[in-house]
Amino acid sequence: MVAAALAPQAPSWGVWMRRNPTVVGGGLILAALVGLAFIAPWIAADPLGFDPLDRLKRPSAAFWFGTDQFGRDVYSRVVYGTRVSLIVGVSVAAISTAIGLVIGVLCGYYKRVDDSVMRVMDGLMAIPAILLAIALITLMKASLLIVIVAISIPEIPRVVRLVRSVVLSVRAQPFIEAAIASGTRGRVIMTRHILPNTVAPLVVQATYVCASAILTEAGLSFLGAGTPPEIPSWGNVISLGRTFFQIAPWIIFFPGLMLAVTVLAINLVGDGLRDTLDPRIARRM
């Protein structure tokens, strides 16, 4: 009975949510954005539809976010852009986490592969992410898939390092030695004892990768080296608005605002997850 009273009580969901209002806020915004991406066809007009008579119109009741230089509705383009950003963010997070996890576990567990693979990772990490993506995009025909792959590659070494460090520290613990001594097979040790320990830091890392991927995609498209121009991504909308910035700032303002809100929401959720899952780092930040 005494032991039960002394055991740290996990706070209930309600308490946790009241203690982390920013996470709840971020989560709600994120849910709204996902909803927006799904119902885009019902709440927005054709993002490619244009009318030369409606060029560079100010925001009004007919065009909530104004129109661009081809007379396209910026609101519709921004709503559809939500899809592109979320697809890129989630795909990059998933791809780089999955590949990084496999490589990281192998590196942490097998000394033989570790040295050479980590040298390659060091080299990859030395290349600025945006330049690596730019190089890939220069050599291939632009498509959303290429953009996703190009943004994923520079993220992989970071995930590998994270996973590897977790694996190395878990491996050094006595219970792994005991498992090896009692004849547990390598695969079982890996899946039952080591992998579960990588989940918490990976989930946190994945949210940050997702946010940074969304920013990178927008940056690449802004430079004209990203998503093909016929796809309405926020970066593309902003890129086109560049030349008309002084007379039609709304073309840039609205997609930029959505971008900032999206990244902010994901970061807030990430911070909350980090505080909950990894209190050791949380106290420091």
């Binding site: 946010a211 920013l215 927008a218 940056g219 802004f222 902003i238 840039i252 930029g256 605002l257 971008l259 900032a260 809100v261 990244v263 902010l264 970061n267």
Partner: peptide, 8 residues
């Protein structure tokens, strides 16, 4: 600062 894209 972390959320605002540099071009914005």
């Amino acid at each position: 600062g972390f959320a605002m894209p540099v071009f914005m």
